[in-house]
Design a protein around this nucleic acid. Structure first.
Lengths: 345, 345
DNA sequence: ATTAGCACTCTCGCTACGAGAGTGCTAATT
DNA sequence: AATTAGCACTCTCGTAGCGAGAGTGCTAAT
């Protein structure tokens, strides 16, 4: 365990974080006392900064430069010092107004959430569709397209829709297809994979082909850690001075673009958390090289243990944490309300 | 009309384009003769280059630098000089193999197409889902979720699926909902918006609410210029030397990210073209400032006048046009086959 | 029409240098 | 014992100068 910081050191850390997020530059002792009118001298501050540098909370780019918070420093700040500012009431109203004014459906809401999140935080936003690991059958539709090809539409409890194209072994009329669908809709209503597996059906090749496809889709859905992913504000990342060189922006961009990488981050962090808590991932935490200079702020939303999604932002480590955390939390609350009002079975 | 270029000038333009795409640098007269073993002297080349610069096909970054093709130069090259190299047979096989090995459905195919396109071209890829302007009713499903909330799933001919949440004015049982859906499925099968508008129904508030929603969704779908958009390879753009400064990469990225911008480009270019032709948009063509240093190569795929989508790539103006055009054309062919084999009514 | 030769231009990498900002240390002060 | 004033030192950054290298345009000869 690290030695505890004194109150004055905590204050200084707060001020340095604040000043550095404002100016993008390393912060020196003199400018600190000037900016904030402290009644201690710059020499005293230098002594304190030396200690905190020793402890690993601050970093000097070179011997005669000001200080910059380290990952450690940011972590301490976020854990102990950041104060969550509630968003101003009119901002909150404007945002929720936008949601309730476009009552078009889940897809639109998630898109909107990503857009608002990106704008408010001036960072890249991530929103995943609500999803349940316990795939439950709700409704099946089989639509003949041509010859043996059938469009299969499977609706799961929670509103998730999966479609695929089925190539049957023989040509089947739309009537027969509808009968099969009706049959399954009766029997499988509200069942999960195991329950459907237990059911016994008459030996019809087509019927079994359909059931196999349904089961496969349900298993596939259950295996997904997240629903569809909505991204927005990628260009915000490019605008940040720490990523002025495209080369530096590539890693975080790659992470956002590659589903597998993104899923890895999402699953290993918030998927283990309860709804309500906000997780802050600073500098990759030694696990993700792609996030070297980034912070990711994530939280879950939805109905705990039933239908949950993830949402958050990715930005530079130098980030207005208070404001961003508040924004993420607020939007998560809104989405949770929308989901529980509309999506539950 | 520009004066015609001599054969030798065409050759030189070709070589300059080739050399410049290879080295990223302006190319000079001496290096040309050295690289390609030309049997004319550098002085002769200088005279020719001076003429072509005068004509607007080449550009000098500064007085004593080599030449770089202008937008005009690239356009001439693409229109008259580029030779389409068929992709090597084993590349083609590998690619089509991937498509037929993952027969999961449209969504997967489009994702795969975007991924392959991005990898092959080392640029950003764009793929839009096939779409028809003439929205035609195929199937409707109404699923009660809770109280007055209903999940409406509308399938259009061509396989497009639209979902939304309906807030009914009164509580309706699932049975009644199914009846309404069945009724509409009988009556509206294969109808477009106008035909449905002409139908007369008994005065039931719920029924009319559903019909209104269906019509609105169909109109919405018709108004869209494209289906869903799949992007991939955004980081490829960041890797190009012309976009080494993030600031420079922002414009094209913004264009890809902002649906409205992207739709604008897509609609004003290929949407006016027939399937089969490949359009090359070089440097924004005076219309899109965001594309100043970019080229976009687009083509349509699908079933002409029925179900078509767009696909292509966005990269720096300095691009291996021959290879990229071939790749785009090849993938478009593959997707066209898949669509007509599977998606037609 | 082509080419050799040449003077000229512009970029780029290197070095030098002074201003500015910040540090650490020491000795004096509270 | 904590704080502070003072000072020498360090490092970055912008500017200027300079020479090498690559390329050009022009002229005169082929």
């Amino acid at each position: 365990m690290k030695r505890e910081l004194t109150e004055r050191q905590k204050l200084l850390l707060t001020l340095i974080v604040h000043e550095h997020t404002r100016t993008t530059q390393p912060v020196g002792s003199k400018s600190l006392v000037k900016q904030y009118g402290l009644n201690i001298s710059s020499a005293t501050i230098r002594n304190e900064l030396a200690i905190m540098t020793e402890l690993g909370y601050l970093h000097q780019p070179h011997t005669s430069a000001g200080r910059v918070p380290t990952e450690e420093g940011y972590r301490f700040f976020v854990s102990n010092l950041v104060q969550q500012t509630n968003l101003p009431i009119n901002t909150r109203n404007t945002i929720s107004h936008q949601f309730y004014q476009s009552p078009q459906g889940l897809d639109q809401w998630l898109r909107l959430a990503a857009s608002i999140l990106a704008n408010q935080s001036q960072a890249a936003s991530i929103v995943t569709a609500p999803h349940t690991e316990n795939a439950t059958f709700k409704h099946l539709e089989l639509l003949s397209t041509r010859a043996t090809q059938v469009l299969m539409v499977l609706v799961l409890v929670g509103g998730e829709i999966r479609q695929r194209i089925l190539s049957l072994d023989e040509t089947v009329s739309q009537e027969s297809l509808s009968q099969i669908a009706d049959r399954l809709n009766d029997l499988c209503q509200g069942c999960n994979v195991e329950q459907i597996e237990k059911l016994v059906f008459e030996p019809s090749p087509v019927l079994h082909q359909v059931i196999d496809a349904v089961l496969e889709d349900m298993r596939l859905s259950a295996k997904l850690v997240t629903g569809e992913v909505y991204l927005d504000g990628l260009t915000n990342v490019l605008a940040e001075p720490e990523f002025a060189q495209s080369q530096l922006a590539r890693s975080p961009m790659r992470l956002l673009e590659e589903r597998t990488l993104l899923n890895d981050v999402l699953s290993r962090t918030v998927m283990t958390e309860k709804v309500g808590g906000v997780q802050v991932l600073i500098g990759g935490e030694g696990t993700w090289a792609e996030l070297r200079d980034c912070s990711v702020i994530l939280t879950r939303y939805g109905i705990p243990d039933q239908l949950t999604g993830t949402l958050g932002v990715l930005g530079p480590m130098r980030m207005p944490y208070g404001h961003t955390i508040s924004t993420v939390r607020f939007i998560a609350g809104l989405l949770s309300d929308l989901v529980s009002e509309n999506m539950l079975e």
